[in-house]
Amino acid sequence: MDPFVVLVLCLSCLLLLSIWRQSSGRGKLPPGPTPLPVIGNILQIDIKDVSKSLTNLSKIYGPVFTLYFGLERMVVLHGYEVVKEALIDLGEEFSGRGHFPLAERANRGFGIVFSNGKRWKEIRRFSLMTLRNFGMGKRSIEDRVQEEARCLVEELRKTKASPCDPTFILGCAPCNVICSIIFQKRFDYKDQQFLNLMEKLNENIRIVSTPWIQICNNFPTIIDYFPGTHNKLLKNLAFMESDILEKVKEHQESMDINNPRDFIDCFLIKMEKEKQNQQSEFTIENLVITAADLLGAGTETTSTTLRYALLLLLKHPEVTAKVQEEIERVIGRNRSPCMQDRGHMPYTDAVVHEVQRYIDLIPTSLPHAVTCDVKFRNYLIPKGTTILTSLTSVLHDNKEFPNPEMFDPRHFLDEGGNFKKSNYFMPFSAGKRICVGEGLARMELFLFLTFILQNFNLKSLIDPKDLDTTPVVNGFASVPPFYQLCFIPV
């Protein structure tokens, strides 16, 4: 058959498939802009700032609406009420993970971030239990974070109060905490193996944040037939998995079943207990991918939040002064901060919360999916439909947070200066898919920041009023603009 005829037939089939998918069930789905064949609503979305586009569309179609990214149908949730109703009140029905062709290629359905069903539930339950087990290797997770915080302070001392970009050092600290939990080992910041790991993690975040990856996920045929950065992403992930597998083999040879040292040991012990169960989800494949998931999810998000926190503290020296006064009063100079201190430091706690609220790190979270046909607000959402959640619409709700575009710790303080919780605080998402490392991340943010401010004054290279804190939105995360500062020993 003539190649031209084959091409026309293929394009015609794709067009018909697109029209059929977009028209099927439209009477039951939430409203939304009319999609174009094949490309859907992509032309109506700013790929570099999806969150802003969703906010604009919500003003037209309401808090629940339908979009098509290519052939992929998505239902968008915008605003606290619908997000709570879906992710919390109907948590089980909305607990699936959205379709990610690239991740599915890399992870093969294993791990904790992109798995679904029984596998996801069992691996998540085990990971939560293990991360909360403060007795691994007779050292609590808090001990590990405190140790890394001391190392971080010593690295900052080496800058000798000269101007520096904190990106690298602030990236090393949370990565080392995860390494300590998974591998029972922290690395020197100049260790070549550690630097290679950091390089792969950072490069992957840069790649994932590009519009090209959005295109690959919406048109998965590209993955096999086109060159691009997605190939580098898959190569980096394969490198990390190979490295983790080597460490798993080392653990198998040296493990003491009665004295687990780290996450890998705990997983291997669980595998041993379930070795007679042919349906067990505790396999080497799941261990390797879960460890890679924890490394990827637990490094860049925390380091970016820390980097943004220091920029905001530079911009608002009056806030920094209040935090340091609270540190001096509650902790002093002669001991290290600990998590028990947080309950006695409402202002510092409010500042950490406000940093996370203000920066809105992951504006749309990772997409969910419905696990069955769901009736939601008089609409029928078919099983498997991807759910896109606007966390921006919750964290920047102007009824809950007056002047949401302003950095103001009073958003989390009552009139008496006591810490005030808010149900709208969802930087880790909400419901059954809430970030498994939430507790660890909150511990790291509090301890790293208090250790830094206990030991250093922060000095800006320019007038604080002239510092730009506008986030650089890159399609996946909101990151701070480049800046330098000086760490002046107190």
Results as ranks from 00 to 15, higher is better:
228 G>L: 06
246 E>L: 14
241 E>N: 11
181 I>M: 10
202 N>R: 14
52 K>W: 06
328 E>S: 14
445 L>M: 11
43 L>R: 08
179 C>F: 09
103 A>K: 10
12 S>N: 10
210 T>W: 14
227 P>Q: 08
412 F>I: 00
235 K>G: 11
67 L>A: 06
263 F>Q: 00
253 E>H: 15
200 K>M: 15
305 T>K: 02
66 T>H: 03
138 K>Y: 12
354 E>P: 01
235 K>I: 08
302 T>E: 05
411 H>G: 01
45 I>R: 04
222 I>V: 14
65 F>E: 02
99 H>K: 14
293 D>W: 04
40 G>R: 02
85 E>A: 09
216 C>P: 05
231 N>M: 10
114 F>R: 06
152 L>H: 00
217 N>Q: 14
177 V>F: 04
295 L>S: 02
113 V>Q: 13
157 R>V: 10
111 G>V: 02
246 E>R: 12
254 S>T: 15
458 L>D: 01
471 P>C: 10
436 V>C: 08
22 Q>H: 13
354 E>H: 01
482 F>E: 15
257 I>M: 12
355 V>L: 10
81 E>V: 05
259 N>Q: 09
472 V>S: 14
216 C>L: 15
177 V>L: 09
302 T>L: 07
428 F>M: 04
192 Q>H: 15
343 G>L: 14
78 H>D: 02
469 T>E: 14
373 D>C: 04
340 Q>P: 06
263 F>R: 01
297 A>G: 10
13 C>A: 15
281 E>H: 11
95 S>I: 05
92 E>T: 08
138 K>S: 13
4 F>I: 08
185 K>L: 07
120 W>M: 04
402 P>G: 12
343 G>R: 08
300 E>P: 12
288 V>R: 05
451 F>R: 14
57 L>Y: 10
458 L>I: 15
264 I>S: 02
159 T>K: 10
124 R>I: 00
156 L>S: 01
130 T>N: 08
332 G>M: 00
312 L>R: 01
382 P>T: 05
332 G>C: 01
21 R>P: 09
247 K>H: 04
279 Q>H: 15
352 V>C: 10
27 G>S: 12
383 K>M: 08
423 N>S: 12
459 K>R: 13
